[in-house]
């Protein structure tokens, strides 16, 4: 039923597209690394590293046991802060989207707090929690709870009313109405909000670790700079952050492939 291309021509085109999906980005990245390498050599900089030096830096970190330790430290903070944001944001957003008085009461406050950059909260977080894991976890929570809440809220408010009417017609009220109709109808948009939030959380953990703690990938960057201008390790940290960010996004994207939510993303 779904786009099964039986004839040879369609299959050939698809193989070509699949190969293109793999080889084109790899080609781009190789070109990028070459241009980087050439630029460093031409400029004659002895501080800024070439890609090879960065790779060696990553190897050095791995051998010292810091690589795994810092990645785990960062992911640990993101897991707690982001997980907490999902647990709070989804139910809160659903309730605010459904109950008009709750929306009118809470929405202005949310819209005032939302544009404050999580970075601006760093001093406050340190004041409240000290230089411990709690501070970055709090900041990550803060950064991701708003996109999640707002997307869940908007999903309920923009839901096609025919779903609600059909559900009510079958006698659903209260919690079962939420569980069987409102939540599944809102889920595609909630997942989109979660994806945005995870991206933001990953941005924020790095910033928070530069200031509030002494472990993690953000700390690696600032420490490598301060303790001996090790720019190979600075860029190694950046490369790791980028690669892990990509993996996280790919993981969340897999959620969008489930049959229960695929209807919500249009034709791709």
């Amino acid at each position: 039923m779904s786009g099964s291309s039986g004839n040879g021509k369609g299959a050939a085109v698809r193989v070509r597209v699949e190969r293109g999906k793999l080889f084109l980005p790899i080609g781009t990245i190789i070109l990028f690394l070459l241009a980087w390498d050439v630029a460093v050599r031409i400029s004659g900089s002895d501080l800024f590293p070439t890609p090879i030096q960065v790779a060696k830096g990553i190897k050095e970190l791995a051998e010292k046991g810091l690589l795994l330790k810092y990645i785990v430290a960062s992911l640990f903070r993101v897991s707690w802060g982001f997980g907490g944001a999902v647990l709070v944001g989804v139910p809160l957003g659903l309730v605010l989207g459904w109950f008009r008085p709750a929306f009118f009461a809470m929405n202005p406050l949310i819209q005032i707090l939302r544009p404050i950059s999580p970075i601006a909260w760093i001093p406050v977080a340190i004041l409240w929690f000290g230089v411990k894991d709690t501070a970055p976890i709090f900041l990550i929570f803060l950064a991701s709870v708003f996109p999640i809440t707002v997307s869940a809220m908007a999903a309920v408010q923009n839901m096609q009313s025919v779903y609600i009417r059909a559900a009510q017609n079958f006698g659903l009220t209260g919690f079962s109405l939420f569980r069987r109709v409102i939540f599944p109808a809102a889920l595609p948009q909630i997942i989109t909000g979660i994806r945005i939030a995870l991206g933001v959380a990953w941005l924020v953990v790095v910033a928070a670790e530069m200031i509030a703690v002494n472990s993690g990938l953000g700390y690696l960057i600032i420490d490598a700079r301060n303790a001996g201008k090790r720019y190979d390790l600075v860029v190694a940290g950046m490369a790791l952050i980028g690669a892990i960010g990509l993996v996280l996004d790919l993981l969340v994207r897999r959620l969008e492939k489930f049959d229960e939510v695929r209807w919500g993303y249009g034709q791709r």
């Binding site: 025919v162 779903y163 009417r165 059909a166 017609n169 109709v181 109808a185 939510v261």
Partner: peptide, 15 residues
């Protein structure tokens, strides 16, 4: 629930 509506704008649940 004893009186069911068939909606002009399709009300089948896509999930």
């Amino acid at each position: 629930p004893g009186r069911i509506f068939v909606f002009q704008e399709n009300g089948v649940f896509p999930w």
